[in-house]
Design a protein around this nucleic acid. Structure first.
Lengths: 67, 67
DNA sequence: GTGTGACTCAAAGTCCGTT
DNA sequence: AAACGGACTTTGAGTCACA
């Protein structure tokens, strides 16, 4: 198991349980929608800066969600 | 506090407590030694693949160390 | 709402040396 | 043993049109 596949899998998993569309996440994280798509399928090798923006967006989403 | 600064700080911290020279880590992780130097000083924005190689090398070093 | 291919270009990452 | 420099090659980041 490699790190990028794990990161990809966890990002998708956490995004979908939060009922958070790729497109909305992309906007919040200020990352292109198509890049998020490829990242979640393990086709990219993202940098720490990218992970940070996505993780922060995910965190806000979870904290300010209802259910 | 940003993610790259944290990653940099932790990599250096863990490497030095393991008594693990940059050059040896660089060889084990198959990463250029000058890059490891810049990374630990927070001057780089490394990819997941690089983090993985460094982290694996660190892990082996810790597991197969004496003290 | 997401996946894909093709693209540009700034940045990641390498390799040489010197301090 | 680690920082620093420059020149270099490769890849990630970011965009777009289309399915």
């Amino acid at each position: 198991m490699n790190a990028n596949a794990l990161v990809a899998w966890n990002f998708r998993r956490l995004r979908s349980v939060a009922d958070y569309p790729q497109e909305a996440l992309a906007v919040d994280a200020e990352i292109d929608r198509t890049y998020v798509s490829r990242l979640e399928r393990g086709l990219e090798n993202p940098s720490v800066a990218v992970l940070e923006r996505l993780a922060r967006a995910q965190t806000y989403r979870i904290f300010f969600s209802f259910r």
